[in-house]
């Protein structure tokens, strides 16, 4: 029953570029159980951003099905899809906050979209800012915050709609290792306390290791391998996975050296 909360069924997506077409995703199928932190790893150009954008239909796949909780999102009308999206939160590599609005207004924005009265949304937003440890920055503007703080605002914003799914598109890739750890810790806490299904897109094995339970390795728009994180680290089967692990080791060595 809990199995296959999110199912991507034979998803393909291509883009027309100047020098021919790019096949971003080739017949990708994935099943994600509810309440799990699921990772998708791959190098840049592997198609992972396209993949995560298909889950909330920011990108519409050419073929295939996207089933969330037994409902095929591709069958939804635009208004139904708009409302469904309110329960699928997403955070981004570059945070994507409203630069001209205060931190508090940023967190209020999803509530405003849902038509919640001003007083109520401000109270709720303050509560969320406290939760992410940024209450004292409520009246600041995003340009006055560090990267880590911006991502925490984005997380508070995403929580305002009490989503059942959280999509993280390279959410820690613009952050230093220390901050990455704190943000991942925050995502983990949210997952544990709120019971959200989390999908993490990353190119860093460290992120997968730190927080995910299962992982899919993506290369050239195809899934190379799916399994638990421990399996992947102990016994990587695909060349892509081996390469990613190797890259990580090299990076570690340069850190030490």
């Amino acid at each position: 029953m809990n199995d296959n909360y999110i199912t991507l069924n034979a998803i393909s997506k291509h883009y027309s570029a100047k020098n021919g077409t790019v096949e971003a995703l080739k017949n990708v199928s994935l099943s994600l159980p509810q309440n799990e932190i699921f990772g998708v790893i791959g190098l840049s150009g592997a198609g992972k951003s396209t993949l995560v954008r298909c889950i909330n239909l920011l990108e519409r796949p050419d073929t295939g099905e996207i089933i969330i909780n037994r409902e095929n999102l591709l069958n939804l009308g635009s208004e139904e899809l708009r409302l469904r999206r309110q329960k699928i939160g997403m955070i981004f590599q570059h945070f994507n906050l409203l630069e001209q609005q205060t931190v508090l207004n940023n967190v209020c924005f999803p509530l405003e979209i849902r038509g919640i009265p001003r007083k109520e949304r401000r109270e709720k937003a303050m509560g969320l800012l406290e939760k992410v440890g940024l209450a004292e920055k409520a009246e600041a503007y995003p340009s006055q915050l560090s990267g880590g703080q911006k991502q925490r605002v984005a997380i508070a914003r995403v929580l305002a709609n009490e989503p059942d799914i959280l999509l993280c598109d390279e959410a820690t890739s613009a952050l230093d290792p220390e901050t990455t750890k704190t943000i991942l810790g925050l995502i983990k806490t949210i997952h544990d306390t709120m019971g959200i299904t989390v999908v993490i897109i990353t190119h860093e094995m460290k992120v997968i290791q730190e927080i995910c339970s299962s992982v899919a390795v993506l290369e050239n728009g195809e899934v190379q391998e799916i399994g638990t994180v421990s399996e992947l680290f102990v016994n990587p089967k695909s060349r892509a996975a081996k390469r990613l692990l190797l890259l990580e080791e090299e990076e570690d060595e340069t850190y030490v050296g």
């Binding site: 920011l58 699928i88 994507n96 409203l98």
Partner: peptide
Amino acid sequence: VNRGVIEAAVSMGAKTKTIVFKVLIGEART
């Protein structure tokens, strides 16, 4: 206006009208 911010608003389930006034006009006001 940064495409990412528009994308974020779409992902939140904002109406086009809200995106026009709050995101496009709001962010481009300067």
